[in-house]
Amino acid sequence: MCLGVPGQIVEITDTTRQLAIVEISGVRRPVNIACIVDEDHPPEACVGDWVLVHVGFALNRLDEQEAQKTLALFDQLAAYEIR
């Protein structure tokens, strides 16, 4: 129920209803982006953003820097083991 899948916004289709097309592992789906739009992020600026999609809504934007930090920690721990 609480599952979500990451996808990338490829197109804004309806700015009033805040609908976009999101590509999720090669499949394009209409997704409501109301939850990730604000003054700093008008709909047009959202193209290219990675979001987590849950029941047809983008729940939040994925933060690449934070993701890299998490991945870097795994490498660090692995390197620590080898030493």
Binding site: P6, S25, E64, A67, L71, L77, A78, Y80, E81
Partner: peptide, 20 residues
């Protein structure tokens, strides 16, 4: 970054597991 496969890499789990 695809936000999926990167977080499934069994190689990366090794260090984590030892520390766990």
């Amino acid at each position: 970054m695809k936000y999926v496969d990167e977080f499934r890499d069994p190689q990366k789990a090794q260090g984590l597991l030892k520390d766990i």
